[in-house]
């Protein structure tokens, strides 16, 4: 999975676009039990409606319907290859959707860029690049600074503040290649913080960090939630899910279940998420093949 993932992210400009243009897209699908637009509160921070994503005609996400509750800390949970990273990327228009609609506060992503922060998985970066930790965090403020304006002191202070929040104030000047894996992870978290977004999407921010760092990061995520922001986090460690998240989204190609953790994070739902992986994929592939070749609806 990792290899696939890094392949996408390290791909040259246009490669993703290339598959978008070249790959055959299934028509917009209407399903039984279709969720109508009315069921989605207009102002939800993130509203995913009927989204299907396929790589080379192989469905990776199938009919995803989900509204993130405002001001919540949501754990996205599912086995390797469940499509968690793909979900975040499709929502951010980084990979093409076969069908479906995604809204942030009632508007498509391209209108709401400033409000949405993203922390990628670590692989996609050229770590030898000559930038300091501070430079990377400053990039988070580019939208606010303006592309043609010089970086002012206020922005520099905001960036330093974000670095201090993740406990890296002392390493601001250090080149990113000279940071440990966990520190690098936190630099990218700080970049997202510096953006001051209202919705955060994070892809495994707790992977490969030590216990202390994990506590720091969780504290930050809670702060963000308490400030009224909505935070969606891909998370692998099932043990800590009930402790960390108020909501969960259980994902395995389809949404298996979602809702408040206490009610949703049950043994039964977990069994469905982790046990039935193959059957779900096959079902979806079969259905997609039928629709692709079938008569127009």
């Amino acid at each position: 999975m990792r290899r696939w993932f890094s392949h996408t992210s390290a791909a040259p400009p246009g490669c993703v676009e290339g598959t978008a243009a070249g790959g055959r897209r299934p028509r917009a699908v209407a399903t039984v039990g279709l969720a109508t637009g009315a069921e989605h509160p207009r102002e939800a921070p993130l509203s995913i409606h009927d989204m299907t994503v396929a790589y080379q005609q192989r469905p990776v996400l199938w009919d995803v319907d989900y509204d993130a509750p405002e001001g919540s800390l949501v754990g996205i949970v599912g086995p390797n290859g469940a499509g968690k990273s793909t979900l975040l990327k499709a929502v951010l228009d980084l990979v093409p959707k076969a069908s479906g609609r995604v809204m942030f506060y009632g508007q498509p992503y391209r209108r709401q860029r400033a409000l949405v922060g993203y922390v990628p998985q670590r692989e996609s970066i050229d770590w030898d690049f000559p930038v300091s930790a501070l430079d990377v965090v400053l990039m988070g403020r580019y939208g606010r600074i303006g592309w043609f304006r010089p970086v002012t002191r206020a922005h520099r202070l905001a960036a330093l503040d974000a670095l201090a929040r993740v406990g890296l104030a002392d390493l601001a000047r250090r080149q990113i290649s000279q940071l440990s894996g966990g520190q690098q992870q936190r630099v990218f978290l700080a970049r997202a913080l510096a953006q001051e977004a209202r919705v955060y999407l994070m892809d495994e921010p707790l992977a490969s960090v030590d216990a202390t760092t994990e506590r720091t990061i969780i504290a930050i995520l809670r702060e963000l939630r308490d400030e009224g922001r909505t935070v969606l986090v891909v998370h692998h460690d099932l043990q800590t899910v009930p402790e960390y998240f108020d909501h969960v989204l259980l994902l395995n190609t389809r949404v298996v279940a979602h809702g408040p953790t206490a009610r949703t994070f049950t043994a039964e739902n977990l069994r469905k998420t982790y046990g039935g992986r193959l059957t779900l994929l096959e079902e979806a592939a079969h259905a997609l093949a039928q629709r692709g070749g079938g008569a127009p609806a």
Binding site: L92, L94, I125, F129, V131, V136, W147, F148
Partner: peptide, 25 residues
């Protein structure tokens, strides 16, 4: 020099540049 920020973003982290609305291509 005029496009320093855009070029830096595109060279360093293309995905990020795309998310910030920079026409990467």
């Amino acid at each position: 020099l005029l496009f320093y920020k855009q070029l830096l973003a595109v060279c360093f982290d293309e995905e990020f540049a795309r998310l910030r609305g920079v026409p990467v291509e």
